[in-house]
Amino acid sequence: MSAPSLSTSPTTAAPVAAPHRRAALYVAEHQFRSMLNYKWTVVMVGVGTPLFYLLGIGLGLATLLDADLASGPGGPVPYVVFVAPALLASATVSVATEEFTYTVMSGFKWRRVFWGINATPVEPGSIVSGLVIAVAARMAFGSLLYLALMLAFGAVGDLWTVWLLPLVGVLGGLAFGLPLLAYASTLKDDNGQFAAVQRFVFTPLFLFSGTFYPLETLPSALHWIGWISPLWHASELGRVLSYGAVKPAWVTAVHVLVLLAFAIGGWLIARRTFTRRLR
């Protein structure tokens, strides 16, 4: 009933498999399989959020606003054009608040799958990379849906550069998400820390870092919230690409650099915390 050779006899030398470079992809593949369990959530959130925001703002809020909040090279732009890139960025950041928190707790504690992977040739750093790949893919998917709806709603200004918006979405999501991943991987238990991140980090940033109105509208004492917020940097970068928001090139460069610094810094720390925990 059982196959002739279930495990190699110790005399036949098994090939000494080298640690393979595709390890991170195997982890990502595993994550995708898990995501299939909540594929409808991914799709509904991906389509629903932009649809409701764009409809609500385009049909409702925007009609009440007289003031021109922002302008591109060709003069003032409609409110929905101003707000759409920031909404796209907050959508990916919102994905990060789920995937880089509960998924991590599940891997270490609830489902314990990281410990299973740990016993294979895959190194802890590759587990991190695999998670990042899978979540970045989900962010890219959400961003593309957002972009498609923005185009459908006419919520874009510059058709030449707007295609880069999903990239900004992913970068913004990772800039917020990877430090969060590093933090989540140090937690032995979820005693409401993740809900606190949602309530006391994500929501304030969403409301106070230039999503719905330019940061300059706030009292200058509060501007720092934007400066340290990956969400603000991603939103501002998105506005440059979406409708050509007018600003000096160095400011755009700073946005990119800050986002990269958050993402890379978080990634490196997460690699260390994963390694320390699993080894």
Binding site: A14, V16, A18, P19, W115
Partner: peptide
Amino acid sequence: HGPQIRAQLGVVP
């Protein structure tokens, strides 16, 4: 040689 060793082990935790 952690990865090379783990490649040839089966582990039931």
